[in-house]
Amino acid sequence: MDEAVYWYAVASVLLFLKMFATSAYQGFHRITKLTFKSPEDAAFVGREPAREELPQVQRAAKAWLNDLENIPIFLGLGVAYVLVGASQGLAPWLFLVFTAARYLHTVFYLCALQPWRTVAFAVGVVCMAVMSIQIVAAIL
């Protein structure tokens, strides 16, 4: 298996696990506090619906939305990267640094840590910019 494909697959699985963990974090807080905004969920546990989501759930939802703005773009660029045969040597660095940046972004978001959240976000964007440059260089 080609090195770029291998590291793309590893990054994809790690990003899935990160997003799954973000969802589990929301569920953990809802379940342990028996606080649900959806009427059917609240009724299932014999409670009234909450007026607002728990603060932890709100933060995780915002981190999740940010993932939805970035991870699909990374996945698309990653497919293009491996298909055009862009730099094999840079692939593990770009794919794993992006993945680490997304993990850190989520942790920093959940912990309300600035400027670290923005730094992690910027590192991920730089990785995608370099991937884009590498793709264009490979097709020219």
Rank of each mutant, 00 (worst) to 15 (best):
Y8E: 01
P55V: 00
L83Q: 15
A129D: 06
A129W: 04
Q134P: 09
L113M: 11
F98L: 02
I73Q: 10
F95H: 12
D41A: 08
A4K: 06
Q56P: 09
T106Q: 10
L104G: 15
T35H: 15
L104K: 09
G46S: 09
G85K: 06
E3F: 04
D2M: 07
Y8F: 13
Y25R: 05
Y8L: 11
V97C: 07
A137G: 01
V107Y: 13
T32E: 14
W64P: 02
M131V: 01
S132L: 11
V130S: 11
I135S: 13
E40D: 15
E3R: 12
M19Y: 10
K33W: 01
F36C: 06
M128P: 04
A60K: 07
L75C: 05
T35G: 03
L94T: 08
C127M: 08
R47M: 14
L75S: 12
R102V: 00
A9Q: 13
N66M: 06
E53Y: 08
Q134F: 02
I135L: 04
E52I: 00
R102S: 06
A61D: 14
K37E: 14
G76R: 04
Y109L: 00
G89R: 03
E3D: 08
Y6P: 02
R59V: 03
K37V: 02
F16D: 04
P55D: 10
V136Q: 08
A129I: 07
A43C: 03
Y8Q: 07
V82L: 02
H29Y: 15
K33L: 03
S12R: 10
R102Q: 14
H105K: 08
V136I: 11
A21M: 11
Q58K: 14
R102C: 07
L96D: 04
Y103E: 05
L34A: 13
G89M: 01
S132P: 10
A91I: 01
L68N: 15
V130W: 12
A42F: 10
V119H: 13
A50W: 09
F16V: 05
C111R: 15
L65T: 10
V119P: 13
H29K: 03
A100N: 09
Y103I: 01
V97S: 10
E40A: 09
M1S: 12
T22K: 01
L15W: 10
F108Y: 14
E69Y: 04
D41G: 01
E40Q: 14
L90W: 15
V57W: 07
Y109S: 05
A137T: 03
F74E: 07
V123Q: 07
A61Y: 04
G89V: 00
